[in-house]
Design a protein around this nucleic acid. Structure first.
Lengths: 87, 87, 87, 87
DNA sequence: ACCCTCGAATGTTAAC
DNA sequence: GTTAACATTCGAGGGT
């Protein structure tokens, strides 16, 4: 019976390690982003404006994705779902 | 000295009451929204589609507001800020 | 037949407008709440503590309502249900 | 003179692309993390507890790093700074 | 009727 | 210190 706990413990350890590894990666990327903003700032760009540009472009992307999603929803509602392109 | 605490207590009580009053209002409105969705559903509308419609229209609004904000940001960055229309 | 779609379209439009109107209201109230917290903060209150107070009182209310519900259940079981006060 | 703007425009474009590229990466990693939590959940782990474990370990790490920083400060003060291990 | 996925709301942290 | 991004938590809705 203690074996079962041992297995669970090993699994838990594995999950914890995988998550911590990924969170490290994420932090690295976030720091890279900060660096890029800093670089831009040092070349005379207004980071506030730059951030706005990024955010509005993200909105555009979101809207495009939402529009595709809404189309998909309509198709499903009409029983005309299409096959997903990949994966 | 205890008077000071009395004052603070009364202020605190007042803030708590105002907030709770407003949260009640908010809940009422949220319930109204649910009711409308329920009504639409009972009339044969697919609430999932309806929600998507609402969300995409909200995205449109956000984008419009963002565009105005980004324009504003540019103008400020150029030292050409305009006077706000009201308030 | 296109008439039917016309009706549905108008109904849809109506639902969308009602929901958007209510969501605006909800946002207004949410903003009001934020304002009150801001006001409290400007008078020296710790908003974090204030939020805790609000949430604890909400829990208490929930408990009270549950207790009333239990009481109600008993009364019904005994055929002694009372009329709700309003609405 | 328009050349100067052209250069700035290209730089801006480059910054925007780099940032968007990095934000995509960040999102990918964040999604990976979600996946791992989902996997753990599907194997019977309580994700809430798992998140707590992760956060506690992170706190521990912070403490350890602070302690190392303190130690480092002492060593520097004593003119006994050691070389960083890598990078 | 329950789980599970998703979106909204809250609380926290970091940037300016 | 104030505002905005971020992560987490909570709750509703839909599917099984």
């Amino acid at each position: 019976m203690s074996e079962a706990h041992g297995v669970a413990r090993d699994q838990l350890r594995s999950f914890v390690e995988r998550i911590e590894r990924l969170e490290e990666e994420k932090k690295t990327v976030a720091d890279d982003i900060k660096e890029v903003y800093g670089e831009a700032k040092s070349m005379g760009f207004d980071t506030k404006v730059l951030r706005k540009v990024i955010s509005i472009r993200k909105l555009d992307q979101n809207e495009r994705m939402e529009q595709e999603a809404v189309l998909d929803t309509y198709l499903h509602a009409l029983g005309m779902a299409e096959a997903p392109p990949e994966e």
